[in-house]
Design a protein around this nucleic acid. Structure first.
Lengths: 214, 214
DNA sequence: TCATTAATTTAATGACATTCATTTACGGAG
DNA sequence: CTCCGTAAATGAATGTCATTAAATTAATGA
């Protein structure tokens, strides 16, 4: 058998990304073999090379798909912006961490990406593609919104955005590696949520009595 | 040649950790081969297996050594505690990020550690060994110190410690992957430093007029 | 001096990723 | 409808590691 009949054709590329994502729930990127992916898709390993330059390229596609899911979720959340900017910030942080904890291996892959030999330098930075920029713009908008409510006076919104993102990403990352320091006062599971609360408390503390009092 | 003469013996284990750390300045953990390490040490690859169970074991040793350096630096910094708790916090954050940016591959390895097949579950969490605990305790102490100065009233020091660590780790991690969002207002290099400043501004904002006014 | 043990070495082994040459289906031109 | 070029797979190499095995030689202790 060589070329498959039209009625037996499957979208290998799409299926491979899906199946790889699924397989990553159980194994790490390094352990994942092309043969496993091929088997899950229903083809042989070399067939994958018609759709991906190499394994890293496949992993990068999974990585990108992961960001699409993450950002899509965040954008959906932004849709219901009946809530104010401040609470939107909190909701975003919680959603972000939830995503990370629910998709550990995927998240690890997303933030320890395989090297890109595609020649280009910055082309694959998810914060430089459409969805990423939109998501980042959203975060920034929430921050500007907070400033309109009297929070974070005088702060550069871009710097604040990066700081908040750093905090949630850092917390998620440490949690996933079981690097959350143990203590008697807090149990590990809720620690990530408490990071968000703490950050929000910090933001709240910056509020000036001045501007307006909602 | 088989067993080396006593006057030609070298400390393969120590040398391997050193050389691997050095090699990681240029290549990633995945690309690093046992042969490269062996060549740098001055032996053949199989000889390494007399000192490490396998490659992951070697990488974990490098990982642990990295934490020792990181923590040792932090502890040294704590020594000169002529400065107040608040400024100690800032200095710690800056030192942490500097370490990460100066040792990118090592830092990546430290926070994307190889799987431990040593059977044990928690034995290798650097925050559960002596140095890690000491370092963490130090952070906590600085926070409690800040509370004594009126900052962070009513906050659980353990949660605040994890939050601050998350922020600096997250910032370092994002920077290392070139994930720092670009903008006109800030240039990337100083962004990490500005995260620390922002976090410190947050902490400063929590200060209550009440207790004492230094 | 000799047996035992330890630290290396060279020479397998085996798991993958990746490439090659070949096969077979599809789609269009005549 | 047939023939041809192309696309998409396949099974069989290749090559690069990590890891193991067997063989070699030094140190150590009786």
């Amino acid at each position: 058998m060589a070329r498959p009949r039209k009625d037996q054709q499957i979208d290998i590329r799409g299926r491979a990304i899906e199946e790889a994502t699924r397989l990553l729930e159980r194994t790490s990127a390094a352990e994942l073999t092309m043969q496993e992916v091929a088997a899950a898709v229903g083809c042989r390993a070399p067939a994958l090379y018609n759709h991906f330059r190499n394994k890293d390229d496949l992993l990068r596609a999974v990585h990108d798909a992961g960001f699409e899911r993450l950002f899509a979720g965040k954008l959906a959340l932004a849709g219901r912006s009946a809530i104010g900017a401040f609470e939107r910030l909190r909701a975003g942080g919680i959603a972000y961490i939830a995503f990370a904890l629910e998709n550990p291996s995927l998240y690890r892959l997303m933030f320890a990406p395989p090297p890109s030999d595609g020649g280009g330098e910055a082309a694959e930075n998810p914060f430089r593609n459409d969805l990423g920029l939109k998501s980042l713009a959203l975060l920034r908008a929430s921050i500007v919104g907070c400033q309109g409510e009297g929070y974070l006076p005088g702060q550069d919104p871009d710097v604040v955005a990066f700081t908040l993102w750093s905090a949630v990403h850092g917390a998620a990352s440490l949690m996933l590696q079981d690097r959350a320091p143990v203590s008697e006062t807090v149990d590990g599971d809720r620690l990530a949520g408490r990071v968000v609360d703490t950050m929000m408390a910090f933001v709240a503390a910056t509020r000036q009595p001045g501007p307006d009092a909602t």
